[in-house]
Structures are given as C-alpha cells and as structure tokens.
C-alpha cells in the first residue's frame, strides 16, 4: 500500500469518526424531540405533576434542577479553582501535588452510585440534613470537583510563564499575579470545566435520588427534598407511569443543557475576542 492510499484511508476513517459523533447527538435530539414534542405544552412546563407524574407538568422538577445545579456549581467552582490555583501556583511539582492530583483523578472514576451512598451516609444521616437539595448539591459538588480541578489546572498551566514573570517584576505578589493576570487568561478554560460540571449535576440520577430524594412538590428552600428532571424522567420511565411525559421531560432536560452550552460558548467567545481585538 503506498503512502497516498494510506493517507486517503486515514482521512476517511477520521472523517467517519467525527461524523459518527455528531450523528449520535443529532439522532438523540431528533428521537427525543419526536417522542416528546407532543406533550411539550406550556402547561407541561408551568404545572406541577399530579398523580405521580401521570398528569400535569414538571414545574417542580425544573425548580429542583435549577436549585441543585446552581447550588453545586456555586460550591464546587471556588473549591475546584482554588485547588487548581494551589496546585499550579503555590506548590512546586512535588509528592504532595502528585498525590492530590492522583486522588482527584481517582475521585473522577468513582461510580456515581457510590457518591450517592457516601452523600446519604454523610449528609442525610450523619449531619442530619435529611433528604434535601442541599445534601444533593453537596454530593454533586464532590462529584464534579475532579473535573473542575483538572480543567482549571490545565487552563492555568496554559497561561505563559512569562506573563507571571512580567507581573512579578512589576512588584506584584503571587496572589495579585494570580487574580489580575493568570485567572483572567484562564477563564475560558475554567468555564469549560464548570460547564461540564453543571451538565453532570443536571443529568445525574443515582447520586441525587439517594441524597435529594424524589419529592414531587415544589421545594420551598434547599433544605427540602426535590425531584430533579433527570430523576423524574428516570422514575416515570422506569415505573412505566407515562412514556409521553417521560420523553417530554427528557426533551426539556436536553434543551436545558444545550441552552446552557450555547449561551456559555457565546459569552466565552465574546470575552476572548474582546481581550484580543
């Protein structure tokens, strides 16, 4: 086989894999839309579920999802970015950084049901928070931390060392250099990690059922139990309560995640072009 045919085959194989990835996404979106569109009415969005989800809508689930996603992001982002800053800027490459990094990578590989069990024991039972959105959000924080740490670390490392030197040479302290120069440059990369985390906490079921419960009522506060969209979907689909409602819920879930992605990438691009222009 000569180099030219080899090249042609390689290009086509690569093209096929790229094509396949986007096709899978499109297929899921089209299929879920087709199945769920029928039930997706304004009243489905703005009414609470009745009769275990057979009737009514998913308003309470939307509220629960927002609570959980926002809360876990608010807790996980500073923790994760802080860890990343510490690992990259404040400690040299040492045994400690390697252990922390290895630990966080292992954490990323722990199955979500284990996180659920852990969150149940720690927050629900031991800390006596009970099944509530706060317990769920704290558990999700643990789950998304590794992602945020790893992506933030890479983003911070990608900021040229020379910028730090220039900042130090102008009399800046380490913290001033981190906050004024390094972090603003690393923001797009950090956001990518945060968005992955948001997506994960929106779509998680196992860990959330264990910790936030699955109450159908609209939660009045984060100390009440709530059923997120993903959990609602899981329950009504698994128990055969209503497949139409299940697909409509899935459709809302997908629209949620796509919207978040599109908005963030748009904001990120604006941020980047504003800095570069």
């Amino acid at each position: 086989m000569n180099a030219r045919t080899e090249e042609k085959i390689a290009v086509n194989v690569l093209r096929f894999s790229a094509f396949l990835a986007i096709m899978i996404l499109l297929f899921i979106i089209v299929y879920v839309s087709y199945k769920g569109m029928g039930s997706l009415t304004p009243s489905f969005i703005f009414e609470n579920p009745r009769d275990m989800g057979r009737e009514g809508g998913i308003f309470s689930a939307i509220v629960s999802t927002l609570y959980l996603a926002v809360l876990s992001t608010l807790i996980a982002t500073p923790l994760g970015v802080g860890t990343a800053i510490y690992l990259t800027e404040y400690t040299g490459e040492s045994a400690v950084t390697k252990i922390v990094r290895f630990g966080s990578d292992c954490l990323a590989g722990v199955p979500s049901i284990i996180f659920g069990l852990f969150g149940f024991v720690l927050f629900v039972i031991y800390l006596k928070l009970g099944w509530c959105l706060l317990s769920g959000a704290l558990t999700m924080t643990f789950m998304v931390l590794p992602t945020i740490i790893r992506t933030s670390e890479e983003a911070i490392k990608a900021v040229p060392y020379e910028l730090r030197e220039a900042s130090y040479s102008l009399g800046a302290t380490r913290w001033q250099t981190v906050t004024k120069i390094v972090l603003p440059e690393a923001v797009p990369g950090i956001i990518t990690g945060v968005i992955l985390g948001v997506g994960r906490s929106i779509s998680e079921t196992a860990a959330v059922i264990f910790t936030a419960g699955s109450a159908l009522a609209t939660p009045g506060s984060v100390l009440e139990s709530g059923r997120t969209l993903a959990v609602h979907f899981y329950i009504i689909a698994r128990e055969g309560i209503s497949m139409e409602k299940a697909f409509a819920t899935a459709l809302v879930l997908i629209i949620f995640i796509l919207t978040i992605n599109v908005i963030t990438y748009a904001l990120m691009n604006r941020y980047i072009s504003k800095k570069k222009a």
Binding site: E162, E165, A166, S169
Partner: peptide, 10 residues
Amino acid sequence: MVFARPVVLP
C-alpha cells in the same frame, strides 16, 4: 525589568 521577549500583559 525588561525581558528579551516583548511580553505585554493581557
């Protein structure tokens, strides 16, 4: 200090 590469802050 002025460095070899003209490093401006972003």
